[in-house]
């Protein structure tokens, strides 16, 4: 800093002197980014890459590998990466995906809640086991059947990364089909 002050005429603003470096103006004119600008751009990109914070999203879930790879990948085209460093553009692109993910979570949670309630009602209509042991095991089976929809939902939420929306939908649809409370069929049928 002292060198910068000694080498040129008096600085226009001494307060800003601590934040600048001799030659910054020349570098800016040549289009060279300072390390601080690089850091700021990277931070903005990382901030906008994060999923929206809401109560239904798991904050401790890992980021999808492809998103990290994309952010860390060098620009092979040699072109400017300003669009990726623009928080506004990234937020605009991420908004529909976040909204879709939230809508999927709410819809699937409602479906799986309905399945759980269905199984609670369904096990009232079933009975099994002629002796104590088999009756006990049958009741444990009923408990497992009631627990199956919430377990399936939580497993999909925990084990499928949030970025892989299609995979989540596929597993949730498979679970909903497999875990239909069929013992309610006589009640539903006329």
């Amino acid at each position: 800093m002292a060198a910068a002050r000694d080498s040129g005429p008096a600085e226009p603003d001494d307060d800003l002197d601590a934040l600048t470096w001799a030659g910054d103006e020349d570098r800016a004119r040549r289009g060279v980014r300072t390390a601080r600008e690089e850091r700021a751009g990277r931070f903005a990109a990382e901030e906008s890459d994060r999923p929206d914070d809401d109560d239904l999203d798991d904050d401790d879930e890992p980021e999808p590998a492809d998103a990290d790879a994309d952010a860390a990948a060098p620009d092979r085209t040699g072109g400017p990466r300003d669009a990726q460093h623009d928080p506004g553009a990234l937020a605009a692109a991420a908004a529909p995906a976040g909204a879709a993910s939230r809508a999927l979570t709410i819809a699937s949670a409602l479906v799986y809640l309905a399945l759980t309630v269905g199984w609670i009602l369904a096990v009232q209509l079933t009975s099994g086991g002629t002796d104590v042991l088999s009756a006990l095991l049958w009741q444990f089976g009923e408990f497992l059947a009631i627990a199956a929809p919430p377990l399936w939902f939580v497993a999909v939420r925990v084990l499928v990364p949030p970025g892989r929306l299609g995979v989540r939908v596929a597993w949730l649809l498979l679970g909903a089909g497999l875990l239909l409370p069929w013992p309610l069929l006589p009640v539903v049928l006329p």
């Binding site: 497992l144 059947a145 013992p183």
Partner: peptide, 11 residues
Amino acid sequence: AAASATAISGV
């Protein structure tokens, strides 16, 4: 849990 639910459904 899914196996148990499908077994009861089958019955």
